[in-house]
Amino acid sequence: MLRTGTIRVGLTAGALGLTLLATACGDGAGAPPGEGTGSSLAGKTIALVGYGNSNPWGAYFNKVYGEELASTGVKINDMTTMDPGTQVQKFNQAVAQKPDLIALSILDTQAMVVPIQKAKAAGVPVLAFDGPPDPSVADDVMSVLSDNEKLGEYAAQNIIEGLQAQGRDSGKIIVLTGTKSMLVTQDRMKGFNRVLAGAPQYQVVDEQDANWDPQLSGTIAQQLFAKHGRDGVQAAFGMADYMALPIIQAAKQAGIPVGGKDGLIVTGGNCFKAGIDSIRAGEMYGTATEDPGTIAKQTADYTVRFLTGQNPPQREVIEEGRVTAATLDQFAEQCSKV
């Protein structure tokens, strides 16, 4: 019979062996895209300090960005993460390696101020994509940004259009935001409130931070529907589709009709397949783009222009789209990649 100590040693050795095997087998994931193609950017290196693959948006961005640059022969060092503290460490590590470019998606705007200043001092160019950096270092980086204020405006337009189509001359709205400390969230709310100010008959009665969390969104929505009563809310804005869909489920479970001639008007954002399906089913009224594929393609294009010395403008903004049943065919494919 084996002794406990022997089993432990065996388990440890087994785990170590599996780790080594996984490392050996998984080496392909870290291989530079387009290696061996021998095209114009061979020998150049990009440190991708982006969102981690555990995030659906990040996973698809990383895939498309890698695919778009594969044929150029540029080497991409994967330094992605979803942890703000780890991102600062990886960014500093990237600066020390002196790549030709750091492609950065910022998780914590404030925490990245000093690292960006260090990169500038070290002469390492930084390209921020998706969300903007802190205004104090905005001139120290290049950027390909989502138009977050526009995305907020589109959400408000969806709600106003939906309520007007139902013939409502007044309406109460609840808003479940992403993490409020993020500039992305703040910019979207700026756009949302600006458009809504033009339709004062529709009022926001509750705005809660749901931290980009689908489970929390559902819980908060359940409580808000109870707080305001079944007839107390006519519209809801979940800042991402994966937050808007739990709102719809919470409404249904509370006995509140969704969509149609007199049901709850729900709008989302960061369009994805389930959101498109919901619009098609007549439940979610609308959403807006900020899909990772479009941003990845434009960021890859910017990267090539910069690394080949074409001197692109310091800041580029993605053109966003408003998605409703009327424009569904135009955006369905673009939004169904994730």
Partner: peptide, 17 residues
């Protein structure tokens, strides 16, 4: 129940469970 409520599952679905 989480999968049914959200109609899809992402890696972060479990949240702070």
């Amino acid at each position: 129940f989480l999968a049914s409520f959200n109609t899809a599952a992402t890696v972060t679905l479990g949240g702070t469970l």
